[in-house]
């Protein structure tokens, strides 16, 4: 056993070839997941049981089971049914990429919706009372008061979830997708040099984590520019 430096310099460019897929998975699921999270949030705070219950069930299921199980149910499980193979969604569900995006979206949507709810609940009541005193309607209060303040409150937790999402994209390698982790696993299977390959990949992921943290730090600073002078 030895530490092979040339293998590292060889395998890093190979693994970076998969960073495109990692980014696509990450950004697509982040955007779709955020949309889903807002919908789930609105359903939960609507005050109507037939809207809030389904949202709560979704959140309960997707936060209570491992993401790996969700990916496998969608990729390997759904094709068991004839009507899914005949449906219009089949072109998406047939591809591992589509399944990975779907699973990551449903999963991150559940988590982010809870984070956003924390932000909404954290909005000071005095602000909303002031809004009522100024004659704002419920919708105006939500758009002009709750949304900006809740966004600011939820952002630190959201950045953590974004990092979890980035790390979760590596699970796409379990359904034959060749993202960075998938490529690394192929290289290790050929060379049987886990240290060199996996440690280099871990460093790439750590750099990504660091970049995400810094970027969210910037956004946080920008959003609280009136709060912390």
């Amino acid at each position: 056993m030895s530490f092979d430096l040339s293998l590292i310099t060889e395998s890093i460019p190979k693994m970076l070839a998969g960073i495109g897929i990692t980014f696509q998975l990450m950004f697509l699921s982040a955007v779709l997941g955020l949309i889903l999270a807002v919908i789930l949030l609105l359903m939960r705070i609507s005050g109507k049981w037939y809207l809030s219950w389904p949202a709560q069930v979704h959140i309960y299921i997707f936060r209570g089971t491992p993401i790996l199980v969700q990916i496998f149910i969608i990729y390997y499980g759904l094709p068991q049914f004839e009507f899914i193979r005949d449906s219009v969604f089949w072109p998406i569900l047939r591809e591992p990429f589509g399944c990975a995006v779907l699973a990551l979206t449903l999963n991150t949507g559940a988590y982010v919706s809870e984070i956003l709810r924390g932000g909404v609940l954290g909005v000071d009541r005095g602000v909303l009372e002031a809004g009522s005193a100024l004659g704002l309607s419920a919708r105006q209060k939500f758009i002009y008061l709750t949304t900006p303040i809740a966004t600011r409150l939820a952002l630190p937790a959201y950045s953590n979830d974004f990092i979890s999402l980035m790390k979760a994209t590596s699970l796409a390698s379990t359904i034959t997708l060749l993202d960075m982790t998938g490529i690394a696993r192929t290289i290790v299977a050929q060379t049987f040099a886990p240290y060199e390959v996996f440690i280099s990949l871990a460093i790439i992921y750590m750099i990504l984590t660091w970049i995400i943290q810094k970027s969210f730090g910037r956004i946080e600073k920008y959003l609280s520019r009136y709060v912390n002078p």
């Binding site: 990092i163 390698s173 886990p194 440690i199 871990a202 992921y205």
Partner: peptide, 15 residues
């Protein structure tokens, strides 16, 4: 906290 869980497991096991 910065590395995917699956990578830590693979590294520890195969390493």
């Amino acid at each position: 906290r910065g590395t995917p869980e699956i990578l830590v497991i693979l590294l520890l096991y195969f390493g």
